[in-house]
């Protein structure tokens, strides 16, 4: 399956990636070959194979509803590019 340039741009937007024209072409080819390989796998008969929802043979890992320490405010905000008092500050979105 060959991807169109438009599809590459859509995927890039969803991932918040800004791609140059040259990159769009390069990733179009690379992503297309990934999808082509998936097409090959898709041809296998999986009628009698149970879906794999998880790769580990583990189920039902739960924790008790008990409080633990929270992170000190200074540590929480230490990597924030911008802060405002107790808050993370980000570009306005509405």
């Amino acid at each position: 399956m060959k991807l169109s340039k438009k599809e590459v741009e859509h995927v890039a937007l969803l991932a918040r990636l800004a791609l140059s024209e040259e990159e769009k072409e390069r990733f179009r080819a690379q992503l297309s070959s990934v999808l082509e390989y998936a097409d090959i796998i898709n041809r296998l008969d999986t009628e009698k194979v149970a879906p794999t929802y998880h790769v580990l043979p583990i189920q039902n890992v739960e924790r008790p509803d008990k409080e633990h320490e929270t992170l000190p405010l200074e540590e929480t905000l230490q990597n924030a590019p911008q802060r405002d008092g107790n808050y993370f500050r980000v570009p306005r979105i509405i």
Binding site: E69, L73, T76
Partner: peptide, 27 residues
């Protein structure tokens, strides 16, 4: 209204000082 959050052990409380009921998981 569980005592703690869904996937980490931070308190599930309304009206606390901003960003004080957080941990590496919910961040």
């Amino acid at each position: 209204h569980t005592k703690t959050k869904a996937f980490c052990s931070c308190p599930n409380e309304f009206g606390k000082e901003p960003n004080t009921n957080v941990c590496p998981i919910c961040l």
